[in-house]
Design a protein around this nucleic acid. Structure first.
Lengths: 194, 194
DNA sequence: TAGCATATGGAGAACTTCTCCACATAGCAA
DNA sequence: TTGCTATGTGGAGAAGTTCTCCATATGCTA
């Protein structure tokens, strides 16, 4: 099926501008994270604000276009990990990958992905990640030590939350790893008998 | 020592305005959370923007004034929990309390508290919370099953992260509790031997 | 009650997001 | 090659934000 982010027929100049906006956005997000200004992205790309909004009506749309490839990568990684001898390790490795990815754009992704069920194309990304995670979790439940009551949605939210908080303090490089490690415990223990 | 958020000598009208701003801010934060506008708070309080900024030069200052009492409560709760028969339970109960508190103002607190070492009076709040937590954690290390390598700063960040993500999806009421429960596992297990 | 240190408020500067539409032009049909 | 027109453009502008500045008003003390 034809990807609808790059309509089949598009005037060559429009296609050009679209690419330039994407390139500018990637750079801007990497530099300023959540504080990137759409105005400045447009300026940087050498187009008017109107043009930016024509191509990407919302910031979500822009994000989807940018992180689409990453989602693909994460799902592929998930499929690989299905063959990992330890289902528990596979799950936690994948969660770590999700968190690392979510930090890539300086927290922007985490901010968007943690939100309620997005209504746009972001929802599709969400869905794909969920499915991949569910497969890993289910395996860890059956063949590993993951407690039955764990929900994949919760784990992904936790990963995003960790990515978000890690992004707040970039100076502490090991933070993300340590926080994931704490969560790791909860993936393996039987439900605490408090 | 005299609290410096309420200077000893202040003109009666100034004191009045200060109170009104605080009341308006509390209401606005509860309603709009992170998106509360300082402008509207001023309007709501019936004062000019200049007046608001005179009393609270930064949003942090405003926050400190509002949540100061809560910090007190959390520390008190922590001291109580030091007497809890189970050091592990005490720690996790307290972390849950921290997360719940951080959600109180619709995520605003979490957003601010997760940030790097604040440089204002917020830092003092931070410090007090850290000390309380460290005491609980140390006890759980010695008399409970908490792994030695756990850092209280990490745990608090995790609590704030959870509060943040829980706030993103208010519809899911059990979310915060479930996420804390996952982390709970990591507080008790020995370090995973991956 | 007079006088002044202290406090006020809103206009305004500098930003933000997002809309609108007169104008430019790519690409097709002749 | 040359129009014609559907498609795409860009920037002015509306409405919002944070935060500053300072002429004016007023509580408090002497």
């Amino acid at each position: 099926m034809p990807s609808d982010d790059e309509p089949r027929r598009m005037r060559a100049d429009a296609r050009d501008n679209r690419e330039r906006v994407l390139r500018a956005a990637r750079a801007a997000f990497a530099e300023d994270g959540t504080h990137a200004s759409l105005n400045k992205i447009a300026q940087r790309a050498g187009v008017g604000a109107g043009t930016l909004y024509r191509h990407f009506p919302s910031m979500d749309a822009l994000l989807v276009a940018i992180i689409g490839a990453d989602v693909e990568t994460l799902c592929a990684r998930g499929r690989e990990l299905m063959a990992d001898p330890s289902p528990d390790d596979a799950l936690s490795t994948w969660l770590r990958a999700v968190a690392v990815h979510a930090t890539a754009m300086r927290g922007l992704v985490a901010t968007r992905m943690a939100a309620p069920p997005a209504d746009g194309t972001l929802a599709a990304c969400h869905e794909r990640i969920l499915l991949t995670g569910e497969a890993l979790l289910e395996r860890a439940r059956r063949q590993g030590t993951a407690p039955a009551h764990l929900r994949i949605g919760d784990l992904l939210k936790l990963a995003n939350a960790i990515a978000w908080v890690a992004e707040q303090d970039l100076a502490d490089e090991g933070l993300l790893g340590r926080l994931i490690a704490v969560v790791d415990g909860g993936l393996r223990s039987p439900p605490a008998t408090v």
